[in-house]
Design a binder for these strands. Structure first.
Lengths: 252, 252
DNA sequence: CGAGAATTTGATTCCGATCAAGGCCTGTGG
DNA sequence: CCACAGGCCTTGATCGGAATCAAATTCTCG
């Protein structure tokens, strides 16, 4: 594999302007989903002047909980997990992020979570300072950032319901459905869902242990609701039953 | 008790302009905390033109999950709980809100939760439509709404850690500390913390049962960490130990 | 092929849920 | 004033789902 650049290089910003505008213009999927959607070509160009790219390897820590929150990141390819830790090592994954997602926004007193890549990942980085000044001049950008944050909040509230009140089976079913819906949004098929994260990551996202996640997958497979071609992919065989399971509609 | 008006009256808006401006100008606590903070007198006046008040009794449902999201609410006095339900009645309380807090913001496809008063509560109501047009003209308002939403998101992420990874004892300790800190922000004493919500509400907020909440209170009292003068108030006797307990630092 | 990690499976334990009383406060009506 | 009804909260006994402990299996990759 080619040695990936582990650091962002702010000095390349000028050189990257056209590339950025081009990628935002040409790649329909990213243009629709990323936070530069709805912006004019000129606005995208201005955004690009304060942005720089990086290609990061898997399991790379972008920043840690408590670090000074200097930058905002946008994912242009790959996958990222955000998590919080307790002093004894217990971990809660706050979210799995994919192409078009944003993170690191709005924190004044240091990042509230650690961000780590799951796979090889392409990130756009913006300094908080520069992005702030642009926001003041571009109302559509401001609105876009706002609505993305609200969407994150709604998702977080849904996750609270899952963590506080759902059974292991319901949690896993909800998780698979969420991944599947997200894949569809990205233009991918709904059914063979890719799991770029480990069982440990899934467990820490759902408030379970590795063993319980594994057992629940096996159980759902035994019941004919899903298929497990390999540990990194899940087939949704019975979408209706999975949906019912996720909402506590049937089973135990 | 005087019969409280159960409905908002939009036609009183004009009449209320001066009152609104006055209350935001004169009441320091609300001015600092509510989302009209940082706004000029003129801006507050303009906000007031699209706003209307209501005094609501305890246990009053402001709106239900799934209702069309027409309005945004600001609490000027009292307390509100937001919750989500599963089809079989399991409930997760998403948040307890107090003076200065905002809710109902940014939902395009219906409210994502039910909002219900805990105590007698004074609310300001704004239509989404009118507030949206004002936001376009008042960047400081836009920023304020944004930063309040980010704060909610950070709190939601903290709550995910609590729900997914903390023990019952840690959950209750964290809850009491959060209430105490909030009281201090409001200018109230840190120690006799008021609990305007029932044990059932606390349980549904922490992902526990009523019985476990009650037992945990008793246990913390037995250990000399808290005092329970009555079921609606808690004395924080050993703040340091409570903090340690909340973060999983000691005990089991 | 072999070392080490990730995942699955099995046996047992334990924390919090459930089931079941019992106590306490508040309001109401005799 | 007291009796009583109905919440709400607390306490006790038991149960069960997921955690923990332990081991086997599969996957990965040199």
């Amino acid at each position: 594999m080619p040695p990936p650049p582990l650091d962002f290089d702010d000095h390349k910003a000028d050189r990257d302007i056209d590339l950025a505008a081009a990628s935002c213009r040409n790649c329909d999927v990213v243009r629709e989903i990323a936070f530069c959607a709805d912006l004019s070509h000129d606005e995208i160009k201005r955004l690009a002047t304060v942005r720089c790219h990086a290609q990061l390897p898997p399991n790379f820590t972008v920043f840690r909980e408590g670090d000074a929150a200097d930058h905002v990141y946008s994912i242009s390819g790959g996958a990222v997990k955000l998590y919080k830790l307790l002093s004894d090592g217990r971990r809660q994954i706050i979210g799995f992020l994919f192409s078009g997602d944003l993170f690191g926004l709005g924190l004044e007193s240091g990042y509230a979570y650690t961000a780590e890549t799951l796979t090889q990942t392409q990130l756009c980085r913006f300094t908080h300072r520069r992005l702030d000044s642009l926001r003041g001049e571009m109302p559509r950008l401001e609105r876009r950032l706002f609505s993305m944050t609200v969407k994150d909040l709604v998702a977080a509230q849904e996750q609270m319901l899952l963590l506080g009140r759902k059974t292991a089976r319901e949690k896993v079913a909800s998780f698979l459905l969420k991944l599947s819906r997200r894949a569809v949004e990205q233009g991918l098929p709904a059914s063979p869902v890719a799991l770029p994260m480990s069982r440990a990551d899934i467990a820490d996202y759902l408030g379970l242990t590795i063993e319980t996640v594994s057992r629940t997958f096996t159980q759902l497979k035994r019941d004919g609701v899903i298929g497990l071609p390999d540990s990194g992919h899940v087939l949704l065989l019975d979408g209706w039953r999975l949906k019912e399971t996720a909402e506590g509609g049937l089973n135990g």
